[in-house]
Amino acid sequence: MRGPKVSPGVWTVLVLAVLCLLWQWASAGGQINPFYFSSPSAIWGSFRSLLAAGTLQKHFIVTVKEAGLGLVCGGVLGTLAGLFLGTHPRVSAALMPLLTGLNGVPKLALGPLFIIWLGLGLRSKVLIAGLMVFFVFAFNLYAGIRSVDRSLVLSVELLGATRGQVLRKVLWPASLPWVMASLRTALGLSLSGAIVGEYLGASRGMGWAISAAGERYDTAQVLCYVFVIVVLVIVLDCVLRGVEKWVLRWQ
């Protein structure tokens, strides 16, 4: 089974193309009802008209901004929390059960509460996305710090390093693989946090647009936004993978 070398990306596109063709053929021939399931050509049409009207761009930017801010805020705070907990065993012994419990609360269920507190705009979505992301980073970094080779830390301490130097020159670089892993998990989480937040109450954003199109039974538009989100996540994940490869090139 050895053919010429084809990159996996080509296969992904090929599979997608075949599925689209089948879908188009089935909806045109009446095997599936295009009213419920739409069709690739209808989705494409709705993509072009949304693009021409500027609606797609507007909602896209709103959602990306919410998710991005949530990712950055939640990521930074979660990283700091994880670093702190990992380096302070007594504090973490007291706080970890609490954090684990809080993480168990479905954050989306708190959405309505956040909207009451912070309004329908940007801030409530950033809070939802940020909160989802926060726990990923906090738990990963905590585990990362705890798994750092003790003999590495000891050897650097014996070279005369201060606590701050140990943190900056050993613990932080040693946890970078965990930061990168968190980032990749958090990417999808922050987007779904923002989108579902918009579902719960908003006047803009792709989540809101999906829910509005759904109410009009405009399946083509719903799926159009879904595809935009899928493509966005794939592209960002590719970029992140490149960054990860470079950051962790020593591995």
Binding site: L154, S155, P173, A174
Partner: peptide, 12 residues
């Protein structure tokens, strides 16, 4: 101080 462990920092 030199121990038997490999203590070079792998990311440097």
């Amino acid at each position: 101080y030199i121990s038997q462990a490999d203590t070079l920092l792998p990311w440097r």
